[in-house]
Design a protein around this nucleic acid. Structure first.
Lengths: 218, 218
DNA sequence: GTAATTGACTAACAATCGTTAGTATAACGC
DNA sequence: GCGTTATACTAACGATTGTTAGTCAATTAC
């Protein structure tokens, strides 16, 4: 009768179940469009009972955010030290892609925050993005690539990050457009393939910086 | 006294001013987080007066969407016919970038719709994205590039589109991160430079498809 | 000039929101 | 066993929401 298998994943506490429900709803609808009644309904309790676990809606949101940020920053913390080789950049990108596939909610929450430009944005920026822009960051052996030598590096870093995150935030649209589950293993492979190919192209491209193309027709 | 200069841009009607205000607010906060009171305040009227111009909130939203879609589809309609050359792909990308810089609201509205996966999404998809995936679309002279030959083409098309749109939807974050106005002329040049460089790298890259990088550290 | 239409307004509604107060029940400490 | 704590509940609040009804001044039609 004792469920040792379930002991590995013990029955989640009410607070955790509230966090789970709130995370999904905040990520889908955003802060103000998510009602505490919706959260409570998903948990199977009444909305005033939420106040036994969180001070108010704002505190619940911040708890959701905190849990997501620690979840996402953990696997990447090991990259903080040591030289930044090309291989580590690839590994870093692949890790991020897999993380966002495993849990799309952080990207969605971040996108909501960025759109509304609310006060939540700053905390997100500091925790997630600022580490990407440490001044000493330069990729070994990439001194003369198009990105490094053209002053576009921070833009390029953001671009690749956006590539990963927008895939997640646009996922419902991908589903309708391409007719397949954007979170399937096959889709994950496709995205990894594409994004690594783009990164390789950037690293190995030896041509000039885009000189501009005459906008007139043929 | 007659203002001939103003005749070129005649005083906008109340309906237009409502559309302008609603467009900004829907794009910033999303549908349900935007109240008709906010819209009315921006126009300088009371919220019930909105009903003299639009049937209800939903109709106002759809009118905003309709105006944006026609505004954005017009400059690109000329690309519907004729062969798809590389130069035309560059021109198409540059046009899209410039459009979204001139008015970021469509991208933001689209991002809100995609996140919430609401019923508005389908109309947006059909009008904006489906033309990108006409079956006969193949880029002249690109038969053997990495994108064309690897079955990644629709993914790549979406990736480049996401690159453009996520720049806009993440603009507030760019402002705080990079410390400059993401919609300045200089920033526009930077983004155009980066995105064209990426596209050139994709077109001219002759290496293999990403073979995967051993994820183990050094 | 008068009638009709437009478009603003105020007042008010039902619903929903976040939140508080007060109560009851089950579990836990000693 | 008993008091304490934790956590669920119902009832109710003030505020805000989208929306309707009805009024009134200004513009337009003839």
């Amino acid at each position: 009768m004792d469920n040792q298998a379930a002991a590995a994943t013990p029955a989640p506490s009410t607070a955790q179940r509230i966090l789970d429900a709130a995370e999904d709803l905040f990520a889908e609808k955003g802060y103000s469009a998510t009602s505490l009644g919706d959260v409570a309904d998903r948990v199977g309790i009444r909305s005033p009972s939420l106040y036994n676990h969180f001070k108010n809606k704002e505190a619940l949101y911040e708890a959701v955010l905190e849990r997501l940020l620690t979840e996402f920053s953990a696997p990447l913390s090991e990259l903080d030290s040591g030289p930044v080789t090309r291989e580590r950049v690839f590994y870093w990108l692949e890790t991020i892609v897999r993380q966002h596939h495993a849990n799309p909610n952080l990207a969605r929450l971040l996108q909501h925050a960025a759109l509304s430009g609310g006060p939540h944005t700053n905390a997100l920026i500091d925790r997630l993005f600022s580490p990407m822009f440490r001044p000493a960051t330069q990729i070994e052996g990439a001194e003369n690539t198009l990105i490094e030598s053209s002053g576009l590096q921070p833009w390029a870093v953001m671009a690749f990050n956006n590539l990963v995150m927008s895939y997640v935030t646009m996922a419902p649209m991908y589903r309708d457009l391409l007719g397949q589950d954007p979170f399937s293993d096959e889709a994950l492979d496709n995205q990894l393939n594409l994004i690594k190919t783009l990164l390789r192209a950037v690293f190995e491209y030896k041509g000039d910086i885009a000189p501009g193309v005459p906008p007139s027709g043929e």
